[in-house]
Write a protein that binds this DNA or RNA. Structure first.
Lengths: 233, 233
DNA sequence: CCAGACCATATTTTCGAAAATCATATCGTT
DNA sequence: AACGATATGATTTTCGAAAATATGGTCTGG
């Protein structure tokens, strides 16, 4: 699926508003639209080719997700970043993800195991192609997300999965923020492998501990290498 | 502030869209708009006196909160209720509220104690006026919400407070759903008093246990007395 | 030189018409 | 009668103009 091809007006079956919401979300997470950036309608109108009201709907939805900051009567801007927000997002992620991993390990069936194993396999394959800059590869991003999603998918709560997904997005934006300044990725491949093994062997305590470390060390890395961006705002 | 007076076009400083979002949220939580009800624009347009696009923005925001169900190309409807959803909301609330109570008890200062005590006092005063039907009194609803909000307000995480608030709204809708069929309110006054005392005396374990019981028994009550509504859909 | 009022411009917000899409009824064919 | 295609009406979705509001600069009086 060549994304460079001319993009159809909208994806099949979807409203334009939903499509714009999706594209805006991607750009904000990737920091193509940097934190704090004012989102003026003229500019967005040109960039996304949609009308005022359609854009407004998309921005409102993203504001509810915490990726956009709505300032009444004064427009929208990309949600600013801060050290405090990074800490809150990290904390909330640990709280929820830990619980979901426990539930998934308890409830997961054969399909769950297969999903965990196959998404990790796919992730490793992509990492082999370009071991230096995984975060820049959009396929790696998708595969990484899908692996972590597969891990908790069997938890049994759509409500908590939706909350988890929002927090994951907000955290991923911080990862992108520091991506350009980080010297080298840690041994993520090894961490993911260990998490998978703990999950499949139903060792909940170990899986929980690994996940917590995984989340917190990523966050620490961001705080370290994006420090100048976090203190500026 | 007589709400029966002619409502101004919109509240001061707010956009019409934000105002409509607020009013729609209230009506959905109160089950004035019953679960599953289709939300057609003609009807809403007449009821709320706003245009298509403004309503659409409000509905999109509420969809992100889980109170409205957006069906692509086929409009919106009030989010349906189900036994499964009630269980998920209850579970998620316990997980988060328990954590927030712990943090608030650890971090709460004098202002927090004062807020907890005074919101409970206000709640008890309102209950004295009409001990039979507290849920029908809109002032009781507000006071009840403010007491529970005060309890966790000192937790230090705006992110988790926002998530908690959404879950509280969704749970309140279920309370309203069963309100008409419940024979008698339990001794809520006593429960709130006990929670307050545990919190103020910094007995985190006790407070956590009381809150969990409080949430779960409310949920059980809903499941019992609104059973016919939960299985229908 | 500063503070406040005023105007002009930029930007957001709202509206209803028009286009797109879906649901339903009707008809023709097997 | 059953089925599929098609037309018709109902409903949602999108658009750009128009109204409302904020912003920034200029002028005036102290």
């Amino acid at each position: 699926m060549p994304d460079s091809a001319i993009r159809p007006r909208k994806e099949f079956g979807k409203t334009i508003a939903a499509d714009i919401t999706h594209r805006l979300r991607e750009e904000i997470i990737a920091c193509a639209l940097p934190p704090g950036e004012p989102l003026r309608f003229d500019v967005l109108r040109e960039r996304f080719g949609a009308s005022f009201t359609t854009l407004r709907e998309a921005l409102t939805a993203l504001a509810a997700e915490g990726l956009v900051d709505a300032q009444e009567q004064r427009g929208f801007r990309v949600a600013p970043v801060s050290r405090q927000d990074l800490v809150e997002v990290t904390d909330a992620r640990v709280l929820i993800e830990v619980e979901l991993i426990r539930r998934a390990i308890e409830k997961g069936d054969d399909d769950w195991e297969i999903a965990v194993i196959s998404t990790l396999h796919r992730l490793k394959r992509i990492e082999q192609r370009d071991p230096e800059h995984p975060l820049r590869d959009p396929e790696w991003k998708i595969a990484h997300r899908q692996f972590h999603e597969a891990l908790v998918s069997a938890c049994g709560s759509a409500t908590l999965l939706a909350i988890r997904a929002e927090l994951f997005d907000r955290a991923e934006r911080y990862r992108h923020l520091s991506a350009g300044f980080r010297p080298r990725p840690r041994d993520k491949a090894g961490e993911h492998q260990a998490i998978m093994q703990a999950a499949i062997s139903r060792n909940a305590d170990l899986a929980v501990q690994l996940i917590e470390t995984h989340i917190r060390s990523t966050s620490d890395n961001v705080a370290k290498y994006a420090a100048h961006l976090l203190d500026a705002e």
